[in-house]
Amino acid sequence: MASEQNGEADPLHDRVAVAEGLARAAGAKARDFFLNRGVLHPELKSASQDLVSEADRSIEAWLRLSIHEHFPTDGIVGEEEAATEGTSGFVWVIDPIDGTMPFLVGQPNWTVSIGIARDRQPVAGVIFAPMMDELYLAVEGGGAWLNGVRLTMNQEWTVASTTTGFGATQKADPKDVGAFVEALYREGGVVFRVGSGALMLAYVAANRLAGYYDPTLFCWDCWAGIALVREAGGVVTFDGELDRPGPMWAGNARVHDDLVRLSRRPT
Rank of each mutant, 00 (worst) to 15 (best):
residue 102 P to L: 08
residue 75 G to D: 10
residue 34 F to A: 13
residue 121 Q to T: 02
residue 51 L to Y: 04
residue 69 E to G: 08
residue 53 S to I: 00
residue 92 W to R: 05
residue 26 A to Y: 02
residue 100 T to H: 00
residue 118 R to G: 05
residue 54 E to M: 09
residue 108 P to S: 10
residue 138 A to F: 07
residue 105 V to R: 14
residue 44 L to C: 00
residue 110 W to N: 04
residue 85 E to H: 13
residue 107 Q to D: 15
residue 102 P to N: 01
residue 63 L to H: 00
residue 63 L to Y: 10
residue 65 L to A: 15
residue 127 I to R: 07
residue 117 A to F: 14
residue 102 P to S: 06
residue 69 E to D: 14
residue 35 L to A: 13
residue 28 A to C: 02
residue 78 G to C: 07
residue 40 L to G: 02
residue 26 A to K: 14
residue 74 D to V: 07
residue 42 P to E: 01
residue 93 V to Q: 00
residue 108 P to M: 02
residue 106 G to M: 15
residue 56 D to F: 03
residue 62 W to C: 06
residue 131 M to K: 09
residue 112 V to D: 11
residue 33 F to C: 10
residue 30 A to D: 10
residue 66 S to L: 06
residue 71 F to T: 08
residue 35 L to R: 14
residue 115 G to A: 04
residue 39 V to E: 14
residue 114 I to F: 12
residue 41 H to N: 06
residue 70 H to G: 09
residue 95 D to K: 06
residue 91 V to F: 14
residue 68 H to T: 15
residue 53 S to N: 03
residue 40 L to M: 15
residue 94 I to Y: 01
residue 117 A to N: 14
residue 105 V to E: 11
residue 63 L to S: 07
residue 67 I to Y: 05
residue 46 S to L: 04
residue 93 V to Y: 04
residue 80 E to R: 09
residue 108 P to R: 06
residue 140 E to S: 11
residue 48 S to R: 15
residue 130 P to C: 07
residue 40 L to T: 11
residue 111 T to E: 05
residue 114 I to D: 13
residue 52 V to S: 10
residue 40 L to P: 09
residue 137 L to S: 10
residue 87 T to Y: 01
residue 39 V to Y: 09
residue 80 E to T: 13
residue 100 T to G: 07
residue 60 E to P: 13
residue 65 L to N: 05
residue 55 A to E: 05
residue 38 G to Q: 12
residue 82 A to F: 03
residue 73 T to D: 13
residue 58 S to Y: 05
residue 54 E to C: 04
residue 133 D to Q: 15
residue 65 L to S: 13
residue 56 D to E: 09
residue 111 T to D: 04
residue 121 Q to F: 05
residue 88 S to F: 03
residue 92 W to M: 03
residue 89 G to W: 04
residue 129 A to D: 11
